[in-house]
C-alpha cells in the first residue's frame, strides 16, 4: 500500500470501536484486471492498496463500525489486529480518502 506512514503522535488515538468509516465522496474502490490489483480511485489520482488494505476498504460501507469490520476481517484472515486496522483507517482519513461519519456518542461529525 502506498499510503505513507502515519504521524507517530496520532497513533496514540485509535478509532473507537463504534466509529463508522466510509469512503469519502468521490472515492471509489475498484478492481483493475490490467494490474491484477484493487485500485482506489479519487479526484487527484490512483492508489494501489495491498490485499489487506483492500479488504478493509471494501468493508467501509458507511454502515459497519470498526468493531464489525474487524470481526468480519477476522472471519476471512488470520492474525487480524484491531490496532492495525484502526491505524490504517486513520492514515486513510488523513489522506482524505476515508471519513469517519459517527462519533462514539452517535453524533455526526461536522468537520468533514
Amino acid at each position: 500500500m502506498t499510503v505513507p506512514d502515519s504521524h507517530p503522535e496520532k497513533r496514540a488515538f485509535p478509532l473507537p470501536d463504534t466509529a463508522v468509516p466510509r469512503l469519502r465522496r468521490g472515492v471509489r474502490l475498484s478492481f483493475d484486471p490490467t494490474r491484477d490489483s484493487y485500485v482506489l480511485l479519487y479526484p487527484e489520482g490512483v492508489l494501489l492498496p495491498n490485499e489487506t488494505a483492500a479488504a478493509v476498504l471494501g468493508r467501509c460501507d458507511g454502515g459497519a463500525d470498526v468493531a464489525t469490520i474487524v470481526a468480519s476481517l477476522a472471519r476471512d484472515f488470520d492474525g487480524v489486529d484491531a490496532a492495525q486496522v484502526s491505524d490504517l483507517l486513520r492514515r486513510l482519513e488523513r489522506r482524505r480518502l476515508v471519513e469517519i461519519v459517527e462519533r462514539p456518542d452517535g453524533t455526526v461529525r461536522d468537520d468533514g
Binding site: S30, D32, T34, R35, L41, G45, V46
Partner: peptide, 8 residues
C-alpha cells in the same frame, strides 16, 4: 487507454 491500464 483502458486496455493499456488507464484508470483516470
Amino acid at each position: 487507454a483502458r486496455r493499456l491500464g488507464v484508470l483516470q
